[in-house]
Design a protein around this nucleic acid. Sequence first.
DNA 1: ATAACAATTAAACAAATGCTTAATTGTTAT
DNA 2: ATAACAATTAAGCATTTGTTTAATTGTTAT
Lengths: 121, 121
Amino acid sequence: MEHLHLPHHHQEGPELEVIKSHLAQAEYFQPAADAFKQLSDSTRIRIFWLLCHYEECVINISSMMDMSSPAISHHLRALKSSGLITSRRDGKEVYYRAADTAESQLLHNVIEQVMQIQCPK
Amino acid sequence: MEHLHLPHHHQEGPELEVIKSHLAQAEYFQPAADAFKQLSDSTRIRIFWLLCHYEECVINISSMMDMSSPAISHHLRALKSSGLITSRRDGKEVYYRAADTAESQLLHNVIEQVMQIQCPK
DNA sequence: ATAACAATTAAACAAATGCTTAATTGTTAT
DNA sequence: ATAACAATTAAGCATTTGTTTAATTGTTAT
């Protein structure tokens, strides 16, 4: 098995080969990048954080976020299709909440940890 | 102190008020959203992950990523100005590596955890 | 000094993103 | 049935993002 040689040789050893081959598998990183993309928008990260704490209907989310319901609906759709939140209809209303998954819980923790690091208090 | 009333009343209690007031402080979420934005691009998340493991120069990063150096340079600039990586010049080359900060380490861990969740093996 | 190499910056452009308004679908109450 | 309310979808648009090519800056060796 042949190695891809780098223009410069600063590092050595078998570990470098492991890193390089892992890095070449771009698809390994896609799920993480996709999750981060969902939370990279400040509106969406706040919605997600809210839904980690409370189940809410669209109108109330719109009210808390002070945004139009079409705008909120758009963000909810993105979060839902990425699997971070779920929804259920009850009468005229649709209620959203964070998905009960390891990924969702992990991301919720990270959000709070980053806030802790950046806004200690 | 007066509460902002929601259109619908599904939940009750003082906790809801805490959630609402925290949510209203959009700036609390900005650092987390900014960090996630950096890692929301699949090229950038791979570069960051690499630099958590090895210090490397731009040419070698370009080679491993199979992309032009201007493109890589742009991404490095973004990562650096967000504080996730640092650089040092040595002769003609500029070496980059992950910043030695709590935030950087946290995000590195999360990337690997999400990969673990999504690609168990 | 000048040539060669490494890295960055600039300009240009296509693609993606987030929001708005308007129209549509779904559900409930009269 | 029809009116009212909740939510979604569609169309349009301005802004942002990621890349390319070309030009520029910085460093080292001859």
